[in-house]
Design a protein around this nucleic acid. Structure first.
Lengths: 340, 340
DNA sequence: TTGTACGCGTTATCAA
DNA sequence: TTGATAACGCGTACAA
């Protein structure tokens, strides 16, 4: 690890000159010395020490990506295909801008904030924030923040949230299902907060607008923890005969359900119609191919990161960016079975 | 952002004392002042500036995770479920050790090395290294390195590679397929290097030990780029009738193929048997459920990171760690169709 | 056009 | 038990 000081010594000049060459200060240094220094720099393959640079400039070139994990949903959040696609989009954008990405996963907002301030990150992308998390963060961290899929940001003006219209997306799909003739449509989820809550609302609205009454028992709960999932799938499949269609909160759950149903001899869509949300590989490759609500997850990540950089550059940004969704009609939803 | 200096001033003592309290140096400071400082620390919620600390200690507490992307395979490497599961395991382990993870993706080894040295990372996990990449890295970076799934590390003693026996895994599966009565078994992949090459060797060995001759046309190439994949799938399906079984290099490809086959009226396993490699969600949820070679990808990540920390602590480590694989027999492989 | 000197926040050394 | 001071590597006023 060669330092500027060392280079200056060996070249018999001052560190300032070397530094000026490195930063290409125009007119600050003669073409002659510029070339001499540059050649030497290339030769020894000089790499600046970022810690020193950051300390001197009080910046970090790091974008913090904080993922707040809900207890017990996945072994590790990154393994969720939704999350990894999101991170893929974020990472790409950060890299293009010449910044670095530091991912931090925690269930504890305080811990996340501590991490963010030690590293003095230049900007923050937040995923999985619920309730008052947004407030707690905004009082402690004054640099640019972009949230993804957060619904509890009222009054926090300097945040931007990037999301989709979850309520409308599900509403569209459930309306489509109803238009096929279904009257007994269940909703499958594991949790009722944030995004899932919005989706549930969309389902309720579609039902109500079609004049269909909602009963508590129309909400099917899938418990995704590995030691409970089989049991809860069995329960759900047992109750499934009472419905002609099930709206699932995600593609993952839709596909999980479809395979459990098939194993019990209930075929989709002949026996029951199934719809998902996200439009990922799982549903695309499943047979019958999954009818689902499409969202562009990678783009969500890209837009979030791009918006963050606009904030960092001091440009104006919206408080809310809503990306479009659309229905992807494939094979898992048809008219209800006869006599149902 | 309050600093040690400021705290010392406000408390009317020296920075040394404050620093000593922070680091809990035993016997270096009186219980009285310890408490006084500690209380104040808690009150103002002091967070150390990592850049300054790193500069002073010449360490970074950062583990670099460098992913070398092959041109054009995925839009973004992180989206590959294999990679995200790997990262999940790595991240978890790094976090538990109190370190931080910085991911860097590039197709260019030089760029990766530059990144690694600017940040002065304390250790490096490398994925996707081929040919002489290992050598190039080892000459430039002297701290601990662990590679994942790398086969070209001959003679680089201070590396550890974490992998599985890819050759044997495929060999076992192809032998199993042959034992079911298949004689015309194709191999589907997209590339012949590193891991894929080993798998191909295993396939060849199983064939040869069963006295089955290999022809060039038994190698089916899937071109995964989005503008070519449909065309290459069509070609493959057209050639599929000449085989009774296809060994696919990954679950992703196996499932992709199965759905393409089904769309053309060729059913699995009645028409043709299909096997995969990895054992991920895709194959598990597909119907027929995929017969595949299991490997524990998350564990690969965990073991890689744990080994890296052993190196960092100066403990002895093996040059090669090989994790086990085993066959997962589900429904996509049966005896060949009649008359075939 | 080049060089000197200082500050960034922390840790470590050594003296008091 | 505490405090002054140097060092880490870089950037930058300001002086020469």
């Amino acid at each position: 690890m060669i330092t500027i000081k060392e280079i200056a010594e060996r070249l018999g000049m001052s560190t300032t000159t070397v530094s000026n060459v490195i930063h290409g200060k125009p007119g600050e240094v003669s073409e002659d010395t510029r070339k001499k220094v540059q050649d030497f720099l290339d030769e020894v393959d000089y790499v600046p020490n970022i810690n020193a640079r950051n300390l001197a400039q009080n910046e970090s070139k790091i974008i913090g990506v904080a993922l707040k994990a809900r207890a017990n949903k996945y072994e590790n959040l990154i393994m969720d295909p939704f999350v990894s696609e999101l991170i893929g989009g974020i990472e790409e954008t950060i890299r293009k801008e010449g910044y670095f990405m530091m991912i931090y996963i925690s269930q504890d907002t305080e811990e996340i904030m501590r991490h963010v301030s030690t590293w003095n990150v230049d900007g923050l992308i937040l995923f999985g924030m619920l309730d008052d998390d947004g407030n707690r963060v905004s009082t402690r961290y004054k640099k640019p923040i972009v949230c993804i899929d957060t619904y509890s940001l009222d009054g926090i003006k300097h945040f931007t949230n990037v999301g989709i219209d979850d309520e409308q997306g599900i509403y569209d799909m459930v309306s489509f299902i109803i238009s096929k003739g279904h009257k007994r449509v269940a909703f499958l989820a594991d949790y009722d907060n944030g995004v899932d809550h919005e989706r549930f609302k969309g389902y309720r609205r579609a039902l109500s607008e079609a004049g269909i009454e909602f009963h508590e028992s129309d909400y099917l709960e899938l418990r995704p923890k590995s030691d409970e999932i089989e049991e809860s799938l069995a329960e759900i499949c047992e109750r499934a005969w009472r419905f002609t269609a099930i709206m699932c909160v995600s593609d993952l759950y839709a596909v999980t359900l479809m395979s459990a149903l098939k194993d019990r001899g209930i075929s989709v869509p002949e026996g029951i119609s199934i719809a998902g949300f996200d439009d990922n590989l799982l549903g695309k490759f499943h047979r019958p191919a999954l009818t689902t609500v499409h969202q562009d997850v990678k783009k969500k990540g890209v837009v979030a990161a791009e918006t963050l950089f606009r904030k960092i550059r001091g440009e104006n940004t919206e408080e809310q960016i809503t990306l479009p969704t659309h229905l992807v009609i494939r094979d898992s939803v048809t008219a209800p079975r006869m006599g149902a």
